[in-house]
């Protein structure tokens, strides 16, 4: 709604936004753009001498190899995209559901909330891996740091949760439970952050709205669709974007594992960075698509 062409007071005020944005721009140049451009240049080159970080320009070769020569990359990429598309809606709905339950005045509310956060508290990385009996993730850190410091991969091979389950339940039930658990617990364990975000969103909804709905005789179901959901849409958008990004860039993701293996275990840094550039282009496309799809449904109370 453009009313006046010249600087109105409101418009002049808007330029004060730069004041708040300034520190971020400084950080962007120092801690992001410079290293990013280095990585970008690296993706077009080939290593000549790794000890002094000397690289030779090589054109688009790395990119061509990724699609035409590398038999691993494209299937991994497709699998990763499929998993993300499947899991994101489940995680979003599930975590909203749990957050609504946790937002009630339950006894031991604190303990329940703590329980759902435990996987996050326990460490999104090392300890979790330890528990699930998978050491792939930490291999490269130990590779980079040597045995003297850092996490040694041997320390983190599992304590055998799977065996424990088999022991407790017998092989058939355990096998079944395992397949279910692999899916469910992966989803549950990845939704701790989402639950917190939704809890935060639910708590910012003014109680007055619910009271008004109550006076009009609205049911729980109606309250959810007419009040809770519309008012938490900004956070639904946030959670969706976060979940997509988290799935794609999680250290467990097969493409990430592959990229890390290529760049640090095989020490082919140039090819690795070309792969990551392709990958992040895909991720960005998905994030942009999610944004555009949801934008129409997101309503901000503060918007004029």
């Amino acid at each position: 709604m453009r009313k006046k062409r010249f600087l109105t007071m409101e418009r002049r005020d808007n330029y004060k936004g730069y004041l708040f944005a300034a520190p971020w721009v400084a950080g962007f140049l120092l801690f992001f753009l410079y290293p990013l451009s280095q990585s970008f240049l690296l993706s077009f080159s080939q290593i000549r001498d790794i000890s002094i970080f000397q690289f030779a320009f090589q054109g688009l070769n790395n990119y061509r190899n990724a699609f035409l020569q590398d038999v691993n990359f494209v299937p991994l990429l497709m699998g990763s995209i499929r998993n993300t598309l499947l899991n994101t809606p489940i995680v979003v709905v599930f975590s909203l559901f749990i957050a609504i339950l946790l937002n009630r005045n339950l006894r031991l509310k604190g303990l329940y909330r703590m329980g759902f956060l435990l996987p996050v508290l326990l460490g999104s990385g090392a300890v979790m891996q330890n528990l699930r009996g998978n050491a792939a993730v930490v291999d490269f850190t130990s590779g980079m740091q040597g045995a003297s410091s850092g996490i040694e991969s041997a320390d983190l091979t599992g304590i055998g949760l799977t065996q424990q389950l088999t022991m407790m339940l017998g092989p058939v039930a355990a096998g079944y439970l395992q397949t279910v658990l692999n899916q469910v617990s992966a989803i549950l364990w990845m939704s701790g952050i989402q639950i917190i975000l939704f809890l935060g969103a639910l708590q910012t909804i003014p109680v007055a709205y619910y009271e008004a709905a109550l006076c009009d005789g609205a049911s729980e179901w109606e309250k959810f669709w007419k009040i809770t959901l519309p008012l938490s849409m900004p956070v639904v958008l946030l959670v969706t974007i976060y979940t997509i990004i988290d799935y794609f860039t999680h250290m467990d993701n097969s493409v990430m594992v592959y990229i890390i293996q290529v760049s640090f275990a095989d020490f082919n840094l140039a090819y690795g960075s070309a792969l990551s550039w392709i990958y992040f282009l895909f991720v960005s496309l998905f994030v942009a698509a999610a944004f555009l799809l949801m934008r129409r449904h997101v309503f901000y109370m503060g918007d004029k």
Partner: peptide
């Protein structure tokens, strides 16, 4: 979107 690993070496 871009994880710290990518920016690590520079």
């Amino acid at each position: 979107i871009i994880p710290p690993q990518v920016l690590l070496i520079p």
